[in-house]
């Protein structure tokens, strides 16, 4: 068998613009892997994995932080109860991601970077991923200290920092500021709160009904795809809305349903 290593001229199929995987792809992968391995080794030589004192179930650290990739979700815990922040929203993120290929029927931008041809899809994804996931992780990692209070990275953690908790539920906020006395009643308040949430989601329905006649896009999308898209988008925006309500009006819950142990 011939073992001489004559260099083969570059073979590029002009019709399909294809090259051989060996050596082109395999070489690139090998180089990527090699460089990453070197990087990982250097990282491992200069920085040791953390190991704190032995587990002690009687000593709760303050703050107790989840692993960094879950700190976005832990940050959401400030604004929503665990059943939302820890269960419903993560499940919706996973399901929501999975349905993307089926609700995005725009054929453009398949296989290349583009912003102009997919403005809606790209902006939604960037808001969700870059702001509500990555940015919240950064806040959780670097800006949260004892009591889950806000600390700048250069501020020392003061365990005794007390932030006055003046949060009130939406119905009491309306009672106190607008004199809507009837909202004192828990049942009326619950109906009112649920109604508000229903109204929020019906924005999506109204938009569809008003626009569907004139919008080719909505007609192509159809009511099912549109409904799922609107539901997911509105749910996503519920988070920043609730953040704003908390920051500016100290609102804790929109609706409380103590009978079934559920607050939103």
């Amino acid at each position: 068998m011939a073992t001489d290593s004559k260099q083969l001229p570059e073979v590029i199929d002009p019709k399909t613009d294809k090259v051989h995987s060996w050596p082109h792809l395999v070489r690139a992968e090998f180089l990527c892997a090699l460089l990453s391995l070197i990087g990982l080794m250097v990282w491992s030589l200069i920085l040791d994995a953390p190991l704190e004192s032995a587990a002690d179930p009687t000593k709760t650290p303050n703050p107790a932080k989840a692993p960094w990739y879950f700190l976005g979700l832990q940050e959401i815990l400030v604004y929503f109860d665990p059943w939302m922040a820890g269960v419903v929203l993560p499940s919706l993120i996973i399901v929501g991601l999975m349905v993307i290929p089926y609700i995005d029927i725009n054929p453009n931008g398949n296989g290349y970077y583009t912003w102009k041809e997919r403005r809606f899809a790209v902006s939604m994804f960037c808001i969700g991923f870059l702001i509500l996931w990555v940015l919240l992780i950064i806040v959780g990692v670097f800006f949260r200290g004892p009591g889950w209070n806000f600390f700048a990275p250069w501020q020392p953690w003061d365990t005794h920092k007390v932030v006055a908790l003046t949060n009130i539920n939406l119905n009491m906020f309306l009672v106190e500021n607008f004199g809507l006395e009837f909202l004192r009643d828990p049942i009326i308040a619950a109906i009112f709160g649920l109604g508000l949430i229903g109204a929020y989601y019906s924005i999506g329905a109204f938009y569809y009904m008003v626009k569907v006649k004139s919008s080719k896009l909505l007609q192509d999308l159809g009511v099912v795809r549109y409904g799922i898209t609107a539901f997911l988008a509105l749910t996503m925006f519920a988070l920043p809305i609730k953040m704003l309500l908390r920051w500016f009006f100290n609102i804790k819950y929109i609706v409380t349903l103590p009978w079934i142990n559920m607050n939103i």
């Binding site: 953390p50 190991l51 704190e52 004192s53 032995a54 587990a55 002690d56 179930p57 000593k59 709760t60 650290p61 107790a64 932080k65 989840a66 692993p67 879950f70 832990q74 109860d81 665990p82 059943w83 922040a85 820890g86 269960v87």
Partner: peptide, 18 residues
């Protein structure tokens, strides 16, 4: 099985209860 790990996992695992 150090302080970091059990409490970080406690935060996450508590979500299951909710």
């Amino acid at each position: 099985w150090d302080q970091l790990s059990i409490w970080a996992v406690t935060v996450g695992a508590n979500m299951g209860k909710a």
